[in-house]
Design a binder for these strands. Structure first.
Lengths: 353, 353
DNA sequence: TTGTATGCGTTATCAT
DNA sequence: ATGATAACGCATACAA
């Protein structure tokens, strides 16, 4: 008649091995002062009863959960998914569990999610991208919970983060288009203001134009508020397609577009195709992220590559280092981007004036 | 001098409100017999001290973690990601946390992941797709841990699951191609045998041909072992592209291909383009899954739609019902598929013999 | 209706 | 080197 059918505890092991409960604990935790003979006894009992430590109890006792909370806006976004892959990989390696939370860019939901997680449930927080939510971040920092941002700088918030140089990245893309002869360069983006990242990229666009002696032509800049419509969350491709489909039918078009994500670019490519623009003969297109489909859309997409997996890896390593009190070399890491040139960009068309 | 800087516990609340610790617990758990006046006192103290329950301690005490373990093979796969979205949505709604584990189709890793999770850490397990791993599943069932399969039937394992009718789905696709005049219908798949799902789809292919009076021509069936190369995990598009690129250069080609996932189809489309086959004029292509990019590749992809989000939703609802001891109507749910017709399929070309 | 006391499975302190 | 025991924060059986 064994007491219920629950998992054996350290107490059961102690009884079976004929030692004290604390001794078992010592063996489990590899304390070096346990004699070989008792250790063997304990190990045998552990094996016999099929014991494994109760993580919950350990957490309660040690006040460490060995769990990282990761907040993303949409796990089905390929850019995000790659970052998460990197995170998972390292977390496993360093003995941490990953607790994923999706916000779908709903700030209230993000706050709720974070609150659940930090209720003594995670040792630290990794915030991946998404819209800025300063209030809640400040609250976390005040609670002294380790937190690292990935692909996100929050203005005026001194915090560990892993980012790319967004200004430089877009500026390079502009330079490249300029070198191909393009003088009318369009830009498709979320409206600036809600995310530092988005702001920086637009700065890069403006700076790139200026450096090459060009002016920003508002007619070529598309930043529709509809991107922020909560109903349409996760539909960047579709939205861009709709917007640009109208745009191409009614407006003067530039000879090239830079977009702030590959998904935007996919929507644009489709709109161009439907409106009988050839890419890149009539219009060149540059995306952002270098997600795995870029090589498989037609034409294959020139893009600004972000080191997605590395961003995840770097972020979680940084976070775990902070949690474990290791020495941090740099609390802000800036990773390199690279312009990947594929078929969607080419020389500017000769204008017939 | 407050003891450390830890979160307030119910003990602190009790002291502040001048009631017993159990009373606080009663209030928190909404027991109806607490008088309004004491309840108010307690609530005030809770608010004042900023208390929130320690989930770890609750779990230890109640032996319930309100956490679901979800095992997937690759979170960056758009098909999987959509299922997970559905899971997350319902889990949140019903008060559960989701613990995600990626296996990358590594059976040993899957076993390790599952072992971690079921160490008193999750109330139940949701196994999404991926290769069959019978041994470990049997072990879990023996432990009486609630488990539900999504997009997976394991032969000879009576277990709750959410699936589609794979045989019927592919058979319908064959019928459709036949009705368009196709008589040489190819098939691209993982090798059968490692996954019941993959087997069933091939059955559907064979059955479909047979029903229409056609024979399986092995020359038109591509099932390369290289798909199982662990190094190449997650590279279905790339692998298919390579394989089919060679195939198209060296073999006789059918007038249509059915593939077991949209990613395969994307790789095929690219190979066809490079080898100057027109789609659908020369060759028709049918994918499987209906992931969000199908409308944005060129030509847009005809595919067998799986109700991905619904599969996730159904699976987690089933699992939570089992966990909570609710009455289950059907422990095996079969959801409908639908053939979504887009640009990649058309009439069979006229053969010039 | 409210309070007291015990135990969930650990870790860690202090004896021995 | 090992054992006895308190404590982590909570839920609950039982007493009041």
């Amino acid at each position: 008649m064994d007491k219920k059918n629950r998992n054996p505890s350290i107490k059961d092991i102690a009884r079976d091995a004929g030692v004290a409960i604390s001794t078992v604990s010592f063996v489990i935790n590899n304390r070096d002062f346990v004699s070989d003979s008792t250790k063997k006894k304990v190990l045998k009992a552990i094996d016999k009863l099929g014991y494994s430590p109760n993580i919950i109890a350990q957490s309660l006792r040690t006040r460490k959960t060995k769990t990282i909370g990761v907040i993303v806006y949409d796990i089905s976004n390929p850019f995000v998914a790659q970052i998460v892959r990197g995170i998972e990989e390292i977390a496993k390696q360093r003995g941490y569990l990953v607790q994923l939370g999706c916000t779908f860019n709903d700030l209230a939901m993000e706050e709720r999610q974070i609150n659940v997680l930090i209720n003594q449930f995670v040792d630290g927080l990794l915030i991946v991208s998404g819209r800025d939510n300063d209030k809640i971040y400040r609250k976390i920092l005040k609670k002294n919970i380790p937190m690292v941002f990935v692909d996100k700088e929050v203005d005026g918030l001194a915090n560990a983060s892993v980012v790319i140089d967004n200004v430089e990245a877009v500026k390079n893309a502009v330079d490249y288009l300029f070198s191909l002869g393009h003088r009318k360069i369009g830009y498709i983006s979320y409206p600036v203001s809600k995310q530092t990242t988005v702001k920086r990229r637009y700065e890069g666009y403006c700076k790139g134009l200026k450096n090459n002696g060009l002016k920003v032509n508002p007619e070529y800049v598309v930043m529709d508020e509809i991107y922020f419509n909560q109903e349409l969350e996760g539909k960047d491709m579709e939205i861009t397609f709709e917007i640009m489909n109208k745009f191409l039918m009614t407006k003067k078009v530039p000879t090239a577009f830079i977009t702030i994500s590959d998904l935007f670019a996919y929507g644009l490519l489709k709109a161009l195709r439907i409106n009988n623009f050839r890419v890149p003969e009539d219009i060149s297109v540059i995306g952002f992220d270098n997600i795995i489909f870029d090589n498989y859309v037609y034409p294959s997409l020139t893009t600004i590559k972000q080191p997605k997996k590395l961003m995840g890896i770097t972020g979680i390593n940084l976070l775990i280092d902070i949690i474990e009190g290791n020495k941090i070399e740099n609390s802000t890491v800036i990773l390199d981007t690279e312009l990947i040139i594929r078929e969607s960009t080419g020389p500017a068309p000769n204008e017939i004036t």
